[in-house]
Computed example of a mutant assay.
Amino acid sequence: MFAAVAAGNPLQLSSEVADSNGLQHTIALSSTKSRACSHITLFILPNVTFPENFIATVYFKLAANAEFQLFGYLSLEKPSAIFKVRLPGSSAPQPGDGLGEIDMDEDGDSGPGDKALVTIGISIEPREAGLQKVQAWRAERASAASRNTSTLVLSRPAGPAIATAGQLAKAYPLLTRDLAAKIVQHAYNYLSGFLDANGNVSIKRFDTWWDKFRNRLENDGTFLDEISGA
C-alpha cells in the first residue's frame, strides 16, 4: 500500500503489521547505507485507492529499541512527503512534516556494515481523529521550539487587526508577493499537464485544481513551502 525510497537506494515496499487488519504498516530501511541517504520519500502506491475519510499518520524511529515518533501524515490529497536525513546529529528524529529532518549518528555506525536502521511506521486512522493528533503534535512542536530557541519572531505593534487581503499585502508586502507566486506556480504545475494541442486548458480543470488546492490549504498550509519555480 505504501513505499519508501532513500536517495541512492532501491525502492522498498511496506508490509502489514500482523493482526492490525491492514491498518498498520511498516517499512524497514535496514538495507540503506546511512552515508548515501540524504532524503527519504514516502508515498501511497499509484494503484492504491486511499479512503477519503482516513489519513495515514507517519512515524519514524532510528533504532530497533527506540519509540516511534510522529512525523506527519499522508492522505488522498497529500499522497507523498519527503523527509531529509541530516548528518551529523542526534540519534532521534526531529519533528518536521514533509521536508523535515531526521538526525542520524555522526559516525554512521548505527548497524552492521554502516547501515541505517530507519523504520517507518504508518497507521491508517479516521480522518478527524488523525488530524486532531497531527494538530496536537504541531502545537507541542511549536511550544517546544518557543522554549528552546532565541530566534526573533516577526511581530507588529498593536494596532487594527488584519481583516482583508489588501491589509495583509500592505502589512507584509514581501510575504504576500511570495505567497501569490507560490499559488500561481502551484496552479501552473497542475494545469500544464492538461494542455490541449492549442495550449489551452479547460476551465473545469481549473475548478478541479482550485477545489484540491483549497482543501489542502485548509488541512496543511505548510505544503506551500515545498513549491518552487521551474
Rank of each mutant, 00 (worst) to 15 (best):
194 F>M: 14
149 T>Y: 02
162 I>T: 02
151 T>L: 14
90 S>F: 12
121 G>N: 12
195 L>E: 14
197 A>H: 11
142 A>W: 12
77 E>M: 07
199 G>Y: 10
123 S>C: 12
184 V>H: 12
116 A>K: 02
130 G>F: 01
160 P>W: 07
156 R>V: 00
157 P>A: 03
75 S>E: 10
144 A>R: 14
75 S>T: 04
144 A>V: 10
138 R>S: 00
151 T>Q: 09
107 D>C: 09
74 L>M: 15
95 P>D: 04
95 P>C: 11
140 E>M: 07
113 G>T: 06
74 L>S: 15
109 D>C: 13
145 A>H: 13
135 Q>M: 09
150 S>D: 08
183 I>C: 12
163 A>G: 10
75 S>V: 03
178 D>W: 11
98 G>Y: 01
85 V>W: 11
176 T>P: 01
86 R>D: 12
128 E>R: 05
114 D>K: 15
150 S>V: 12
124 I>P: 14
199 G>P: 07
84 K>L: 14
148 N>R: 11
193 G>P: 00
122 I>Y: 10
84 K>V: 13
79 P>T: 11
106 E>D: 14
137 W>E: 00
103 D>G: 10
116 A>R: 03
158 A>Q: 09
175 L>W: 03
85 V>N: 11
102 I>Q: 04
86 R>V: 06
138 R>Q: 01
113 G>E: 06
172 Y>C: 06
127 R>I: 04
120 I>P: 10
101 E>Y: 15
120 I>L: 14
132 Q>M: 11
186 H>S: 04
141 R>P: 00
95 P>L: 07
90 S>K: 08
117 L>C: 05
73 Y>R: 13
147 R>F: 11
107 D>Y: 13
187 A>E: 03
166 G>C: 01
125 E>G: 05
115 K>I: 00
153 V>C: 04
123 S>H: 14
136 A>T: 11
146 S>L: 08
145 A>W: 12
198 N>C: 10
80 S>P: 03
81 A>C: 13
87 L>S: 15
130 G>V: 05
120 I>C: 06
155 S>N: 01
140 E>R: 14
190 Y>M: 06
77 E>Q: 07
132 Q>R: 06
74 L>P: 01
100 G>W: 02
167 Q>H: 15
132 Q>Y: 12
169 A>M: 10
177 R>S: 07
107 D>V: 13
123 S>Y: 11
81 A>P: 01
99 L>T: 05
172 Y>G: 02
138 R>A: 00
73 Y>N: 05
162 I>E: 00
134 V>Q: 02
172 Y>D: 04
159 G>W: 07
118 V>K: 00
84 K>M: 13
164 T>P: 13
156 R>Q: 13
175 L>Q: 07
161 A>Q: 09
150 S>A: 07
165 A>Y: 14
112 P>G: 02
191 L>K: 03
128 E>V: 12
194 F>K: 13
186 H>N: 08
184 V>N: 13
